[in-house]
Write a protein that binds this DNA or RNA. Structure first.
Length: 118
DNA sequence: CCGCTGACTGTGG
DNA sequence: CCCACAGCCAGCG
């Protein structure tokens, strides 16, 4: 039987996003745009936000390791989610700048391929 | 099928 | 450097 190799485009967007975010190592931060690209939809950065927003509270997906391209935590501050994200990141050793942005120069993760090189 | 929303991003003033 | 505007796109009613 012919089994085509599982290409990203065959996987539902949300599933692909979850897989990518799960691959982000502790103490590392990536952007919505980068996740979208790795998920096979380079222009769907906003979709990534929607996907993470749909995650159940008990998810094992490390959603807090995703910030915007500037390292800002753009998650709604409602319900203290913003503060929660910051707490979780700091717990992993992620440093923040004076203006409240994540220190991307020190903690940005660009993907598994990049990881091999660094 | 159509229209609207938003945890984004790039560009221009 | 800060702000406004305009594309983009998945998900949902």
């Amino acid at each position: 039987m012919t089994q085509d190799p599982p290409t990203p485009s065959d996987i539902p967007f949300r599933t692909a996003v979850e897989a990518v975010v799960r691959a982000v190592p502790p103490g590392r931060v990536t952007s919505y745009g980068a996740v979208a690209a790795l998920a096979g939809a380079p222009r769907a950065a906003r979709g990534v936000g929607a996907a993470l927003n749909a995650l159940p509270a008990d998810t094992d997906v490390p959603w807090w390791r995703v910030a915007n391209r500037d390292g800002q935590l753009t998650i709604p501050s409602t319900l203290g989610l913003r503060a929660l994200q910051r707490t979780l990141l700091q717990r992993e050793g992620v440093a923040f700048l004076e203006d409240g942005r994540v220190d991307l120069a020190e903690h940005e993760w660009e993907g598994p391929e990049w990881e091999e090189n660094e």
